[in-house]
Amino acid sequence: MSFAMDYYPNQVIRYVQLGGKDKVLSSRSIWVCACCKTCKDRCPNDIDISAVMDALKEIASEEKASLGDNLVPAFHESFLSSVQKYGRVYEAGMLAGFKLKTRTYSQDMQLGMEFLKKRKLKFLPEKVGQIREIRQIFEKAKAKERSR
């Protein structure tokens, strides 16, 4: 995925070492890292680059007003709000939420029609019985974020 990155993974790590916090936190690289973990497994210095990328995404979401990419964070937000609400991902609702948030209605419209034709999307969400447990997990996760 490095073709879509403004800094290559090794450059991101170097900026972290040198204290280039602003550069990495506002980069596109951290968001278009696909988490394939190839770099982690092949790094000769055994650096867990994908874990660093995840940590940077987490810090950037908390600290930055403007991010190096808006679409990927909007997707994660839509995805997790679906999980928080139902305990499982309700794909149709999650997609609608993402499209509304990012105003990318026309993109993949035709594909959406194909999915509906093939009944690959369900119209109704599935919900976890003990949804209270899921909500509490999310509350604890938020509290951890705040306590940092």
Binding site: C35, D54, A55, K57, E58, S61, V72, P73, F75, H76, E77, F79, L80, V83, V89, I137, F138, K140, A141, K144, E145
Partner: peptide, 11 residues
């Protein structure tokens, strides 16, 4: 999935 580990280590 990817969304949890990208944005919240605890989740």
């Amino acid at each position: 999935a990817t969304s949890a580990h990208s944005t919240n280590d605890y989740l």
